[in-house]
Design a protein around this nucleic acid. Structure first.
Length: 571
RNA sequence: CGGGGUGUAGAUCAGGGGUAGAUCGCAAGUUUUGGGAACUUGAUGUCGCAGGUUCGAAUCCUGUCACCCCGACCA
């Protein structure tokens, strides 16, 4: 490809609305343009990278037995009503009507579509496992689209669905996809983690989120460098912290005027924060008071609290009245003396404490020397792991200190079980002659998000630094002065040779000044730049600039192509 | 949907009742030519949209729309 034949509008300035580096650079390097909030056009350079990512995905899906097909974006309401999600999906689903008033949705995902397709097509266990996939646009009317391609309303997604005869088969499919995803993101040159995720409403099976590590990411994860453990901050399980046994002192109530916060209590009583017990009061949909107790220096993990309490679906901040009805006061709550109407959830590490400070359920008073089990009945409370992970906590697998980082979720693998096959009556005939529901799994990758994440991970002050595999071009050949026929001819020769050797190469034959072209090269981020100058014509070794390191290397003209091919393999 | 902010040239922004501005970009020319060149000339705007006030509105008022940022979701 020649730059004069390629639309690659680079900008000196970023649009005011762009916040993230990746968003700014995608704009400046001419990869995307915005049509409206959360809706983007991909310009030629951006689309080249998108296609490369899609190709990697295809190869890895196919290698695991995936079969590419294509389903409609416009989906009839009936199948969504049948699965029950027409009502559940809410405003995030883009809905429309045709001229006859029939209802449709723009597909936010394709479980309904694929399941209704497969139930009519696949009849026998002999046809299983079956792993159809597609790469196409998805529509989600996000409450707040932002960060460019990171969270948009229309986005390109690869979605594969696995159909198996039993749970064992489903798990095999899951493992295949897990492996394929690891290969895909590795091939894309990304630093990522497969993060144990909470699979929320779907429940039951496994779920991993593939998260590209980047400080600007929206999800927070805990990971271990010693072993492979990684989990979202909400999901990360924690080991019990054992504390030294002390000589127990008798429970005592003390006056703590105006000490509404842990900080104030700690300072007033002059005790270490690890010796305090903090309370957070919630209520659920049935207005049941749920009080969570954790160590003063810990934070309550709402998701874990929710999972620990039977029958609770949502948690809200508890109202004053509710707290007072349970014989307590906000800021001074205690597990000791709360009415039985309150559900008390205590973090496992609190149960290890002794001689601790906790509220006294009355204004301006705290208990000191609180010792669980002795001072409150462990049988009436729920003891669970309900705190938020933090940096340095022991890894639940190997015990080494955990690290915290932020990341961008670019893919997720999920086991669905029979959720959709039952809802949509998708069955097959098994070997034993019985009709059975498919065991399903679904596996998604955000293609545009992967592109954005790569830029987020690899950039510097001059622009993007593409990993070779997903760069719009692997090499750019730049004649310093394209108006010089000899230079241009030399550059064209090199370009032809590289192309013949299978290198994805761009010839920057624009009649621009060298500085302009160099700036563009750095901004767009081609891994290698070959510079053709009068020195090259004079027979000096050819200069090659490595974008990632900024280093210049020089190769003899005669072995230029082989040296470049070899160098590319390392990028 | 709450709270905050912004809409003026292709981009980034200034201006603030009386002829529509700067820089970059774009077009033409001369010189330049290894890190976003200099000079000359030129083209480009319903001042987001609709009403209102006024002799006169980009500017003031009202409404409206769009976009951005902060909170619940997700690839």
């Amino acid at each position: 490809m020649r730059a004069t034949q390629l639309y690659m509008p680079t900008l000196r300035e970023s649009p005011a609305e762009a916040e993230l580096v990746s968003h700014k650079l995608m704009y400046r390097a001419g990869l995307i343009r915005k049509a409206a909030g959360g809706l983007y056009s991909y310009l030629p350079l951006g689309w080249r990278t998108m296609k490369k990512i899609m190709q990697i995905i295809r190869e890895e899906m196919d290698a695991k037995g995936g079969q590419e097909l294509m389903m409609p974006i416009v989906q009839p309401a009936e199948m969504w009503k049948e699965s029950g999600r027409w009502a559940v999906y809410g405003d995030e689903m883009m809905r429309l009507k045709d001229r006859h008033g029939r209802e449709f949705a723009l597909g936010p995902t394709h479980e309904e579509m694929i399941t209704t397709l497969i139930r009519d097509e696949v009849r026998s266990y002999k046809q299983l496992p079956f792993m159809p996939y597609q790469i196409q646009n998805k529509y989600r009317d996000e409450i707040r689209p932002r960060f460019g391609l990171m969270r948009s309303r229309e986005f390109v997604m690869k979605d594969l669905y696995s159909f198996d005869r039993d749970v064992a088969g489903m798990n095999v499919s899951y493992d295949k996809m897990y492996d394929a995803y690891s290969r895909i993101f590795t091939r894309c040159g990304l630093k990522f983690r497969a993060v144990e995720a909470d699979n929320g409403a779907i429940g039951g099976g496994h779920s991993h989120e593939f998260t590209v590590l980047a400080p600007s990411g929206e999800s927070s994860i805990a990971y271990c460098e010693a072993c492979n453990f990684a989990a979202s901050d909400e999901k990360a399980e924690l080991k019990l912290i054992h504390t030294e046994a002390e000589e127990l002192r008798p429970l005592e109530k003390v006056s703590t005027p105006d000490c509404h916060t842990i900080e104030a209590v700690k300072n007033f009583l002059n005790v270490p924060i690890e010796k305090t017990i903090k309370a957070v009061a919630f209520m659920d949909d049935d207005e049941r008071l749920i009080v969570a107790f954790v160590r003063g220096d810990h934070d309550v993990n709402e998701i874990k609290v929710l999972n620990a309490v039977d029958g609770a679906n949502h948690l809200y901040m508890a109202s004053e009245q509710l707290i007072e009805a349970a014989n307590s006061h906000a800021g001074f709550m205690s597990p000791i003396g709360l009415k039985d109407t309150a559900i008390v959830v205590v973090d496992q590490s609190v149960m290890q404490m002794s001689n601790a400070v906790a509220g006294a359920n009355e204004v301006d008073a705290h208990f000191i020397n609180v010792t669980p089990r002795r001072d409150f009945d462990a049988r009436k409370i729920v003891v669970a792991d309900i705190r938020m992970v933090r940096e340095g906590d022991p890894c639940p697998h190997c015990g080494k200190p955990l690290k915290m980082t932020r990341g961008i979720e670019v893919g997720q693998v999920f086991t669905l079980g029979k959720k959709y096959s039952e809802a949509l009556h998708a069955t097959f005939l098994d070997e034993d002659g019985k009709e059975k529901f498919f065991e399903m799994g679904c596996y998604g990758i955000g293609v545009g998000r992967t592109m954005a994440a790569a830029i987020e991970q690899f950039n510097d002050a001059d622009g993007i630094i593409w990993p070779r595999a997903i760069a719009p071009f692997e090499v750019v050949v730049v004649p310093v002065n394209a108006k010089d026929d000899a230079q241009l001819a030399c550059a064209e020769k090199i370009y032809d040779e590289l192309k013949a050797a299978g290198v994805d190469v761009l010839l920057d034959d624009r009649r621009e000044r060298a500085g302009v072209k160099f700036k563009d090269c750095d901004l767009i981020g081609y891994p290698l730049r070959v510079t053709v100058s009068p020195k090259t014509l004079a027979g000096e070794p050819v200069e090659v600039k490595v974008r990632r390191s900024g280093e210049f290397v020089h190769f003899d003209r005669s072995e230029l192509v082989t040296k470049i091919s070899a160098l590319l393999k390392t990028l």
